[in-house]
Amino acid sequence: KITVTFNGEEKARRYYKKMQKHNLKVEIRVENNQWVVHVE
């Protein structure tokens, strides 16, 4: 499981979509004013 933190929504969403293309289970959320993407 990987957790990647971004300081911008745009970058986070781009990464999220990229990971989805690989058929990975991805989850995006905001934690402590940071955009966090969890990849299983």
Rank of each mutant, 00 (worst) to 15 (best):
Q20F: 05
A12T: 02
R14N: 12
V4T: 04
N7S: 13
K17A: 13
V30L: 14
V37Q: 00
K11R: 12
R13Q: 09
F6N: 01
H22T: 08
N23E: 05
N23W: 09
K1H: 13
R29I: 11
M19C: 06
Y16P: 01
R14P: 02
V36H: 05
V26T: 04
K1D: 08
R13G: 03
V30F: 15
T5K: 12
V36T: 07
R14F: 06
Y16R: 03
R29Q: 09
I28D: 00
A12R: 03
W35C: 00
Y16I: 06
Y16V: 11
E31Y: 07
E9I: 10
E27N: 07
L24G: 04
V30K: 14
N7C: 10
K1P: 10
T5W: 13
E9Y: 14
Y16D: 01
N32D: 09
R14L: 13
Y15N: 01
E40V: 11
Q34M: 14
N33D: 11
A12S: 02
K21Q: 13
Y15A: 02
R29W: 12
R14Q: 14
R13P: 03
G8Q: 15
E31K: 05
K25G: 04
N33S: 08
K17Y: 11
E27D: 08
Y15H: 03
K11L: 14
V37A: 01
E40R: 06
I28V: 04
W35Y: 04
F6C: 04
R13C: 13
N33K: 06
I2D: 03
M19R: 02
K17S: 09
E31F: 07
V26Y: 01
Y16G: 05
V36K: 04
G8I: 14
T5C: 12
K1Q: 09
Y15C: 05
E31D: 06
V30H: 14
I28F: 04
R29C: 08
V30D: 03
K11V: 12
H38Y: 15
T5E: 05
R14V: 09
G8T: 15
I2E: 04
E27K: 05
K17V: 11
K21V: 07
Q34F: 11
N32F: 06
V36N: 02
W35T: 01
H22G: 07
V37I: 05
R29T: 13
H22S: 09
V4S: 03
T5R: 14
H38Q: 13
K11E: 15
N7P: 08
W35S: 00
H38L: 14
V4G: 02
E31I: 12
L24C: 06
V26K: 00
Y16S: 04
N33Q: 08
V30N: 11
R13I: 13
V36P: 00
I28A: 01
A12P: 02
N32P: 03
N33H: 09
